[in-house]
């Protein structure tokens, strides 16, 4: 039973980061129907920015955190401005391919700038592993989970109560009506991409502490894609739950069956979800008319 709880805790905790990345994807999809495949590279770049500011330039921790967040947000903004904006109104394949192309550009640029080596952040997350009964909770996983929950709460409040959040929700509902009510849809898109960049960079920093700063961090986002579809692609709460489910699935299948199935179990379940309930747990069912 202890092993089960251990796997369970590990799964839920590591699911936190998946939820965070999934939130970045859902946010953009909700408002503009663009699935951001480049989010993995944004996560990876977040970790690299942090390493550059903190370890290479030797800036204080808080300052480099702020600079990283600004840089990642700016990156999201630039991507939207340069590549996404010109493609508004194009067919769905363009919307899918443009972010795939962007992901290639970002990974190439990162390779060119930082090389293919693995760096380590010289700071570590404070604390030490918690022991509850016989279950060990690694403190870095706990940090990931707590920060993810924190971001979700902060973002939820921002989305619900702030004026910009309200504008985002209006744009997500309907572009034309939002525009008619005096909301600048373009500015809102830019803000949304900025926020998504910030969220991705927070995920990147957390992962950087846990796994080191490497090109492979971008692969983590591949786990967030099934998470998004489990939860329902338009649902923010669904993104959180989806991330946790994927984390659990991975941890349990990896622990009880075999490591190789850990990598693909989210995708097998994803196929089942697509066949049985394509809109996910909390997504909107689409009704089409001619």
């Amino acid at each position: 039973m202890t092993t089960f709880f251990q796997f369970f805790v590990n799964g839920v905790m590591s699911g936190g980061v998946y939820s965070l990345i999934a939130l970045g994807i859902v946010l953009i999809y909700k408002s503009s129907s663009i699935f951001n495949f480049a989010i993995g590279e944004m996560v990876m770049l977040g970790a690299f920015f942090m390493w550059t500011f903190f370890d290479m330039f030797g800036l204080p921790f808080t300052l480099s955190l702020i600079l990283t967040i600004l840089a990642s947000g700016g990156l999201g903004f630039l991507m939207q401005k340069l590549a996404i904006q010109p493609l508004i109104g194009q067919p769905i394949l363009s919307a899918i391919l443009v972010t795939l192309g962007l992901s290639h550009i970002l990974s190439g640029a990162a390779m060119l700038t930082w090389g293919g080596t693995t760096e380590r952040l010289s700071a570590t997350l404070p604390g030490k592993p918690l022991l509850i009964g016989d279950v060990i909770i690694p403190h870095d996983l706990l940090w990931c989970f707590v920060v993810a929950v924190f971001i979700f709460v902060v973002f939820g409040l921002f989305y619900k109560y702030s004026r910009i959040g309200l504008a985002m929700r209006a744009v997500a509902e309907d572009h034309e009506i939002a525009q008619a009510r005096g909301i600048n849809v373009r500015t809102t898109f830019a803000v949304i991409w900025f926020v998504a960049g910030v969220i991705a960079s927070v995920g990147g920093i957390l992962l950087g502490f846990r796994l080191g700063v490497t090109q492979f961090l971008s692969l983590i986002a591949l786990k967030a894609f099934p998470a998004v579809l489990f939860g329902g692609i338009e649902s923010i709460g669904g993104a959180f739950l989806g991330g946790i489910i994927v984390g659990l699935l991975e941890s349990l299948t990896g622990g009880y069956i075999d490591p190789w199935i850990m990598e693909i179990s989210p995708y097998i379940i994803l196929l089942l979800v697509l066949v049985i309930r394509p809109e996910g747990l909390f997504g909107l069912e689409r009704i089409e008319r001619i």
């Binding site: 590549a83 795939l100 190439g108 390779m111 060119l112």
Partner: peptide, 15 residues
């Protein structure tokens, strides 16, 4: 870096 950069740039520019 060159191959991913090439493909990414070509895809986005053509789109």
């Amino acid at each position: 870096a060159s191959v991913p950069l090439l493909y990414g740039l070509v895809i986005v520019l053509f789109l």
